[in-house]
Design a protein around this nucleic acid. Structure first.
Lengths: 349, 349
DNA sequence: TCTTCGCACTCGCTTGCCCGGAGTGCTAAA
DNA sequence: TTTAGCACTCCGGGCAAGCGAGTGCGAAGA
């Protein structure tokens, strides 16, 4: 039917939307009277009471205790986000300011990622974190094997975002600087432009052997590329944790502690957004959808940033479930857009 | 006189030491009766009361309110740390465990610094942070200028700890790969082994010009070296913030917020230990000595780690003023020692 | 002169209690 | 089906009493 939303008739949907909106704004459980006074619903508080009782039975609302107002449940927020709220767009002024602030960072991958995390944390007034592009999905650009001594050297690998990874190697046979240059050139000729994960060990070994090197050099090359692939794997920049303290949800210190622990484990942060890579569009996880009892009071807004067509990383905002979803989605998208643009500044062509 | 410590007679000193010790252990203001019951002082509580009144007049103790027990003041802690407490040493078992855990980190500067911060935070049960060696004080090892196109290239600089910094450059005149190799060799021959800060712009420019390059290349070289010098300037790895929440001092959420803000600003953390480089020995800052009203409830234990003779970075523990100073100094020293050893694994010789 | 004893006094913290406000559910009337 | 009225529930703040730990001081003892 035209006037049904997600199984709710039009009036129920509107009341649910209003309850969520009001609760997000005030943080207080919202009651029927307060609602009718503040919003023009066209019906009396008693009617709203009945509707709210229905919504509670349907699992959209919850009551902290008898004789308190209603609070949205995970399902209530979910319906609100999916079907009820009206999306926001950033104004031109705001876009301009984001762009300006992103310019402060130097053209280094780490710096622009960290800057975008700081910026988003501040603008959103919440904890923000940004994953660095996995080096696995970056392209290989250059390798340079540097001669240090007859039997040792250092391998430097440059990827598309300019991230250089270096590794020392030791050999069993003597080499000359020229040998190393020759091998560097061969590797560059064969692999430049490929995704790092496609530089498989067999091909690397083949090219190395064709240049007349033995197993020790094959091992050195393999180690160097493996280092470049796995380096910075989870790499996450987070900032704005202090905003969490503003939320009344965290009067309880124990909750706070488990969250701080999560923040310090980059791995855990990364896992929160890992599945977003499968379907790279803006996404929202609410409460228990985060898959952890410790985070059940929180919601997560995640937006991908891209390099060309490929989603290479995620910007996220972690905050109380009662967050202004539409606004934060707009902010995250705006920041992601600007971050995507700046990625071209660090690209090694 | 033999039996005076810091202007206090022996008995006063002992009572002060006991009060500090007891307060550190319990976190409760300590009263005269509790003290005489728990420790064998050989005098009655009334005597202790008189002595405590004197100590308060002398500024060593404070009273949260009338009819409460006494609490050490900054000066009280200071005397305790400087003259009263007995230093601790780590046991062989503990040393071994630290060494084992440090082995988990790969031989990369960032990883071992971060690992030592995590380890120290966990062992100390407090917030720990470790500054990365300033690249300014590291030695220059190699530069490699890589040819990308007729008028562009990438400069890679390797320092003594293997940290590679890279920067793109654009030129106004064509160059060949051979030109760049020649210049790289010249720079290496002239500067290898020097401290990075001693690679001054004038000498760099001279060498570049001697190789027959123009101002554009001089600029590129200067930018590359400047990037290596300033990169990671404040670089600080922190961990263990959640332990702060265990302290009763932080029931007040506002304090916590200002501290979290400080943690996220690496700059601020770095400033806390910056002056320790002037006199590189273990040091303790207590309360207001930290120079900030926000941190007045905290103390900071700082221990340098070294590369050879030079102190290249600092390990610190930030916690409540009532921290077990002797124990934490021992832990920090032990970790610093192990970190210093592992530095040799990442050294580029 | 220094130490100890005894005692009155001071606070802060906890407990129990009361009360007002906000909100609910139910019933009966429109 | 909606609305008005009403009794009931529960939270939270305010207030007073009681308790406990500790102090300061004067007087007695070594």
């Amino acid at each position: 039917m035209e006037n049904e939303v997600d199984g709710l008739d039009k009036r129920k949907a509107y009341i649910l939307a209003t309850v969520v909106y009001e609760y997000i704004a005030t943080g207080e459980p919202v009651g029927s009277q307060a609602l009718t006074q503040k919003y023009n619903l066209g019906v009396s508080s008693a009617t709203v009471r009945n509707e709210m009782a229905d919504l509670e039975a349907g699992g959209y609302l919850e009551q902290p205790h008898t004789s308190a107002g209603r609070v949205p449940s995970d399902a209530g927020y979910r319906t609100y986000v999916d079907a009820l709220m009206s999306p926001e767009e950033l104004g031109a002024e705001e876009r301009r300011r984001i762009r300006d602030e992103m310019r402060d960072a130097r053209a280094q991958l780490d710096e622009i990622v960290e800057q975008s995390s700081r910026l988003l944390g501040r603008l959103a007034g919440n904890l923000a974190f940004v994953t660095k592009p996995q080096s696995e999905t970056q392209s290989f650009r250059y390798v340079q094997l540097i001669w240090i001594g007859e039997r040792s050297g250092i391998a430097i690998i440059v990827t598309s975002f300019g991230v250089a990874s270096q590794s020392l190697f030791e050999l069993r046979n003597d080499v000359t600087p020229d040998d190393l240059t020759r091998l560097s050139n061969a590797l560059n000729a064969n692999f430049a432009g490929r995704l790092l994960r496609d530089c498989d060990e067999r091909s690397l070994a083949m090219v190395t052997k064709q240049c007349g090197f033995g197993d020790d050099m094959v091992g050195a090359v393999r180690t160097a590329f493996a280092g470049a692939r796995t380096q910075e794997q989870p790499g996450v920049a987070a900032s704005g944790a202090q905003h969490l303290l503003d939320q009344p949800e965290f009067r309880d210190v124990r909750k706070l502690r488990s969250i701080l622990r999560i923040l310090e484990e980059q791995r855990t942060l990364y896992d929160l957004v890992a599945d977003a890579f499968d379907n790279p569009a803006a996404s929202v996880k609410i409460g228990h959808e985060l898959g952890s009892e410790e985070l059940a009071d929180l919601s997560l807004v995640t937006v991908p940033y891209r390099f060309g067509e490929r989603a290479v990383g995620m910007l996220s905002i972690l905050g109380p479930r009662r967050m202004p979803y539409a606004r934060l989605l707009a902010l995250a998208s705006g920041t992601a857009e600007t971050l995507s643009e700046r990625l071209h500044d660090v690209e090694v062509k």
